[in-house]
Nucleic acid binder design. Sequence first.
DNA 1: AATGACTTCAACCGCGTTGGA
DNA 2: CTCCAACGCGGTTGAAGTCAT
Length: 326
Amino acid sequence: MGRSPCCDESTGLKKGPWTPEEDEKLVDFIHKNGHGSWRALPKRAGLNRCGKSCRLRWNNYLRPDIKRGEFSEEEQQSIIHLHSLLGNKWSRIATHLPGRTDNEIKNYWNTHMRKKLLQRGIDPKTHKPISDLNLLANLSQLLSPPNFGNFMTPWDSALVSSQVNATQLAKIQLVQSMMQVINTNTFPNLSESSLLNIKTHNIAQFGDVLDGTSAINTVYNGTSDPPPQATFDHFPKLCENPQLFDTLYPDVNNSMGSFEGGFQPEFVGLNYNSLNGSEYSTQTETGSLPPLVSDLGEILSPSGSQFEDSKIDIPAFHPFTKCQHI
DNA sequence: AATGACTTCAACCGCGTTGGA
DNA sequence: CTCCAACGCGGTTGAAGTCAT
C-alpha cells in the first residue's frame, strides 16, 4: 500500500498553532463551499496548510457544534463506561458525546480520568481493581507522600514469595484501597506523622477487620498457606461499626478534625444495604449500578474471572465507601 | 520576582483502512 | 487484482500555562 506524504515539508507548508486569520479563512471557506476534498481545500481557501491540518483544525476546534469547557459529571460517567466497553476507541466514544471531539476526550482521559481511576485503585486500562503487583508497588509510590510508599513493601515481598492466590490478592486490593483513601483527599488534615503512626500499627489488624481472623498475618509473615476460612463475611464490621476504626487507629481519627464517625463517599453511590450481609458478594445488580461498579461486577462473575477458581466472595464496594443507610 | 517542575491540550505523525482507477 | 490517493484514527509531542519553591 502506498501512502503519499500529507504535509511534504519541501513545499514549505505552515505547521504549528493556527492564527485567528487562518481560522477565519477556513471557517469562511467551509461555510460557503463545504470542505469537499480536504486535500484540495487549502489551496482553494488560500491557506498555506496541508489538508490534514485543516481537517484537524476544523474537526477539533472550529466546528460550530463543538461544546467547550469542563466535562459534566454525566459526561465523565459516560466516558468511563464507554471506555470500559470500547477501550481507546476515542472516535467511537465521541459519537456518544455530542459536541465533544475524539481528541478532546482522549486528552481529558489521559490527563484527568486516568488519574482519578488510579487513585481509586482501578486500572484505567481494564477498569478492574488493580491486581498487578508491580503496579501496586509503583502506584503506592506514585500516589503517596514520601516514606508512606514503603507501607506496601512487606506485602510485595511476601506475595511474590508465596504465589499469591486469589484470596490474598483480593484482600490486598481492599487494603490497598484503604491506604489510598487514607492517603488522599478524603482525610485532608491527615498529618504525615499520623500516617507514619498507621504504619507502625500491625498491618495484620486490617486482616482482622476484614475477616475476623488473623488470616492476613499469614500473608504478612510470608508463609504460603492460604488463610483458613478466608471469607469476607466479617468485612462489614467496619461499615457497621465505625468506632472499630477509631479503636484501631485513634491517632488517625484525632487528626481528622471534623471527620464524623462514618466513612466518606469515596466511590460512586453503592449503598451497603443493597449488599445485604453475607450475600453481598455476587449481588451485583448490574443494571442498577453505576458504570464503575458494573465493571467491577465482571471480576465477580464466575466465568472468565481471575478469581474463577476461588471460593471467596469479593465485596463489590470500596472498603471505605460510606455505608449508606437509606 | 525568578526559576524550575509539572500539567494541559492543540497539533502533529504515521499507520491502517477504504474506495476508485 | 494491484496501485494509489485520501481519509480517519490513536499515539505522541512540545509550547504555553500553572504551580511550587
